[in-house]
Design a binder for these strands. Structure first.
Lengths: 236, 236
DNA sequence: ACGAGATTTCGACAGTAAACGAATTACGAC
DNA sequence: GTCGTAATTCGTTTACTGTCGAAATCTCGT
């Protein structure tokens, strides 16, 4: 399962390293935070131990994004194999109270994605509105109940960095509650996708509410894990 | 004034760009988010416009951290000059509800900093505990009142990424309230610094409470903006 | 205090990033 | 549709990254 925590932490680490005056020190700091010896890291990266040492000592003043990314990812991967203890430790610093339990996945694309294509790859049926628009990311909301109990401040977080996005509600029964949740807040996503439900099972009021906020509504029966895997790794 | 929002956003941007499969696209995305034309960016960076284009088109597959950092910083600088509209727009995504008003500054160092040196550069007088230890960062808390109203979840955020840090309370009167705030929570910083107060003005109970949690307490009369500037840019 | 293993330093080198500037193409305004 | 400005593409140069491997150095356990 793709972890929001993991990618948030990765982003924080990469950001800190990249902005640092001495990326080497930042790199070392994080490796030490994860309590991973240089040798283990270099093994996993398939490079000689001297490489790690060279970076950390600052011999390379401005390592490329590829290297930084690979190192960050490897640190996290090693930690995950050991039970994710450090990721756990840092997770309280991320995303305030809203985490995995509520948001199953949240992702921003680097360019505008045509909603038509997006919906196609996850097998959507159009219920209302137009598919002819662009989105920049998506959010998969896991538990509607949990969402309803969030403070408005926290709620806004499900919108990530742009409301030009699709919000996917898992295990919808009639689709009414998700639409109510959207209705009562001021931020409107471009598109709502109801997962785990057939077009015929959707409550008729859903289309009405959607039109009022000019939101496109679709449904899909595809398994949620398959959806997430597809959406995360798709090259648009 | 150093803005927490600004550096948080910078970190997010840099992280996203660094971890991206195509840093060029991420770079472009952010420049466009800020609505800054390539020419303006290149001017500000003092490079030819083709440089920007080359990065964004992906001719450089793995730009160095220095370049990414400079571009991110320049985008933010240009936005700030235009009133910080975009920074504002994105700030709701950062740091949940806790922001500038409460936390005046928050910073993590890349290596352990001796508390002795740290306290010396900001002109501290030791009141209780030992100066012979290491810290990894600091937090400047602006308004004690605001702090007291935070939820525990939010409160923990003042600890940043490690409790091995100094927490500086501005405009202390007797130092009692800050210590109470610390007392009632489970996370303990290594050191509390009371700003804007003389050693003789500190309430005697402060030392007692500090000993109980084994926290070093100091005070300083140095101006808070000077403190922040000093601490941010100091090379240890 | 010794030695094995881990870590760091450093010379070498191939490949690529960083930058320029000229040539080309795209985009608005009229 | 044409002109002018802005943006992109691309050839070229220089400097530095990315990597190795050998040698030097550090760090523990006994």
């Amino acid at each position: 399962m793709t972890s929001v925590k993991r990618s948030q932490l990765a982003e924080k680490m990469a950001g800190e390293i990249t902005l640092s005056d001495s990326p080497g020190h930042a790199l070392r700091k994080w490796r030490m935070n994860f309590e991973i010896p240089p040798g283990v890291l270099s093994d996993r990266l398939g490079v000689s131990p001297s490489v790690i040492s060279d970076y950390e000592s600052g011999r390379r003043k401005s390592p490329g994004t590829a290297v930084v990314g690979k190192i960050v990812d490897t640190l996290l991967a090693i930690d995950e194999e050991n039970g994710g203890k450090q990721i756990q430790k840092f997770s309280s610093m991320l995303f305030s109270g809203v985490d995995n339990d509520v948001i199953y996945d949240l992702h921003e694309y680097e360019r505008a994605v045509p909603l038509g294509e997006f919906s196609e790859v996850i097998g959507c049926t159009l219920l209302s509105g137009s598919v002819d628009q662009l989105i920049f990311g998506y959010t998969v909301v896991n538990s509607l109940n949990a969402i309803l109990q969030l403070s408005s401040d926290e709620f806004n977080r499900i919108y990530g960095w742009s409301t030009e996005r699709a919000v996917i509600f898992t295990n919808a029964s009639t689709g009414k509650s998700p639409m109510v949740a959207i209705r009562v807040t001021s931020f409107k996503p471009r598109c709502v996708i109801l997962q785990g439900i057939e077009a015929t099972e959707v409550h008729p009021i859903v289309a009405k509410m959607a039109e009022r906020d000019r939101i496109t509504v679709m449904c899909t029966g595809m398994d949620i894990d398959k959806i997430v895997t597809t959406l995360r790794h798709k090259e648009w």
